[in-house]
């Protein structure tokens, strides 16, 4: 017996709900290792900069390692084994955006630079969450942004240590939280 209009509409709604839930958890699963990875990068980078401020080389090294590891994660998790060139384009766009912002609004202190990147990262997580209906991603982004601002204004003496423990920790926990979805 053919379906009624109501039955067909209900089935289409069920399909849409199941597809959305599946796509969201898939997105969480893909994003999770990146959050954990960059959480570790932050923890090490800010931690070393706090203990040994003269070791400025640590950041370029960590960022380079983080990017290589990110590409490796992307390549490993893509069943087709291809690297999407949009990731490269996104990294280039972000790089030129940061250069342009620093040229126009040059930061005056190291703390400003240290706060800027986490806020930028938090913005990306929130935007990704908004566009993929991933409430957990939005939450992770908001938490990182709020913790960064709190540390910057309320704990300036230990800001780098704060970012190592709280910022890096929030990213690691956020990544594990996404994986559990």
């Amino acid at each position: 017996m053919p379906l009624s209009r109501n039955e067909a509409e209900t089935a289409l709604r069920d399909i849409s709900t199941a597809e959305r839930a599946s796509a969201t958890t898939y997105g969480y699963r893909r994003a999770s290792p990146y959050l954990v990875l960059w959480g570790v990068v932050w923890a090490v980078g800010y931690g070393v900069t706090y203990v040994r401020p003269q070791y400025t080389i640590i950041w370029p090294v960590l960022v380079a390692l983080g990017m290589i590891a990110s590409f490796w994660i992307g390549w490993k998790s893509d069943p087709a084994g291809k690297v999407d060139c949009r990731y490269v384009a996104t990294l280039l766009a972000v790089f030129f955006f940061v250069m342009a912002v620093f040229a126009v609004l040059a930061p005056r202190t190291n703390a400003q630079i240290s706060a800027f990147f986490p806020i930028l990262v938090a913005l990306f997580y929130s935007l990704i969450g908004i566009w993929t209906r991933g409430a957990r991603m939005v939450f992770a982004g908001v938490v990182v942004a709020v913790l960064t601002i709190v540390g910057y204004f309320w704990f300036p003496q230990i800001f780098l240590l704060w970012m190592a423990a709280v910022g890096g920790g929030a990213l690691i926990l956020g990544g594990l939280w996404l994986r559990s979805a």
Binding site: A11, D14, I15, S16, T17, A18, E19, R20, A21, S22, A23, Y26, P79
Partner: peptide
């Protein structure tokens, strides 16, 4: 139906 929808949402 739900199983198929959940699988179809994946790449």
């Amino acid at each position: 139906l739900k199983i198929m929808a959940a699988l179809k949402a994946l790449p």
